[in-house]
């Protein structure tokens, strides 16, 4: 099964920003599909168990996840996340971090530039005291003072420092580690604690909200759009893996098998979410509190849950297998 769509855009702004920044480095060959897959963003699900709030998809410890993401792709990185109220010293050091990255020719990843999503700062001008920035809402400027006055309770910036040689084994193994940890609810959540249901547990939380007819129209539709988009990338990413790992050694054969099997399951997840998306179009979100509609949503969520559970099992097996192999070229 092939999904026809624009593969250069995603609803997951973190992956879009990482892909955007990486495309200024020596690893510009990474496609958005690969970034979505190797960072694990194609496989995420973070559900607010009260009302499926729209904050779910971005409510993760950004510094931790983004730097791990960059590490998977073979980069060392820097982080600024000073809490508000900001001190002049922290503001200066954060601005300086952005400028150093730009001087190296790579945009800085920031949060809540024009909208509460991840975006990129791609230029600075000291004379005008302003940054040039872009996120999915806007391409424009913001002054250093505006940048230093965040609406969220911290000032967030991640920058790429060095690009390291990374074997494809390592990249895949690290990606699988993140994907499996997230699916099984083992990912570190920092300040968010257990406020959100992570990975496969998200389905149970979601179905429960639907049963209680408590889904927020806007939030429900937003979560569906983000996850539908992500799982389409997941399926495509796994198909590509199965296609590209075409060697004859046991590792290549095993990747091919598990990735191929998992792809089928993730395609089924994507199909179910596609139907949910039609039921609850963003931004209006349809009628998630209407009993008939909510029950239909529960059926689709159960289908997706079943398929994703099987998909995760495949990836888990692949992860445990991959942990044992390190060689870049293996003739056997």
């Amino acid at each position: 099964m092939t999904i026809e769509r624009d593969w250069s855009k995603t609803w997951t702004s973190a992956a879009a920003a990482i892909h955007g920044a990486v495309s200024y480095t020596d690893k510009k060959h990474f496609t958005l599909t690969e970034v979505m897959g190797f960072t694990g963003h194609a496989f995420r699900m973070n559900i607010d168990p009260e009302s499926i709030n729209a904050a779910g998809p971005t409510s993760f410890p950004g510094g931790y996840i983004l730097r791990r993401n960059l590490c998977n792709l073979g980069f060392t990185s820097c982080l600024a996340d000073p809490p508000a109220p900001l001190t002049p010293d922290k503001v200066e050091r954060t601005i300086s971090l952005v400028q150093q990255s730009l001087d190296r020719g790579v945009p800085a990843i920031a949060f809540d530039l024009f909208t509460p999503e991840f975006g990129l700062i791609y230029g600075y001008d000291d004379d005008k005291q302003q940054f040039y920035a872009k996120d999915h809402a806007k391409d424009g400027t913001l002054t250093y003072a505006q940048f230093a006055d965040p609406k969220i309770d911290l000032l967030f910036v991640t920058t790429i420092s060095e690009s390291l040689p990374h074997s494809k084994y390592e990249t895949l193994r690290m990606a699988l580690s993140m994907i499996v940890d997230h699916a099984r609810g083992k990912e570190w959540t920092h300040v968010f604690g257990d406020k959100f249901a992570q990975g496969l547990a998200g389905y149970g939380a979601w179905i429960n909200v639907m049963k209680l007819r408590r889904a927020d129209e806007h939030g429900n539709a937003f979560n569906i759009s983000v996850i539908a988009d992500a799982r389409e990338f997941a399926a495509r990413f796994l198909r590509e893996l199965a296609f590209r790992w075409d060697g004859s050694n046991v590792v290549e054969r095993t990747v091919r098998k598990h990735a191929g099997d998992a792809a089928v399951h993730y395609e089924a997840v994507a199909v179910a979410f596609g139907q949910l998306r039609e039921l609850f179009p963003f931004p209006d979100g349809g009628q998630p509190k209407d009993p008939v509609t909510a029950d239909r949503a529960i059926e689709l969520l159960q289908q997706a849950q079943e398929a994703e559970t099987k998909g995760v099992e495949q990836l888990e097996q692949l992860f445990h297998f991959m942990k044992e192999y390190y060689s870049e070229i293996w003739v056997n």
């Binding site: 001087d103 945009p107 230029g123 872009k134």
Partner: peptide, 21 residues
């Protein structure tokens, strides 16, 4: 901070090609 950068002779301006996001 901006004045200090200027006095240290650090670059005043760097604008990359807008990203495709």
């Amino acid at each position: 901070y901006v004045q200090r950068r200027a006095s240290l002779g650090l670059p005043r301006r760097r604008i990359l090609t807008p990203p495709l996001i």
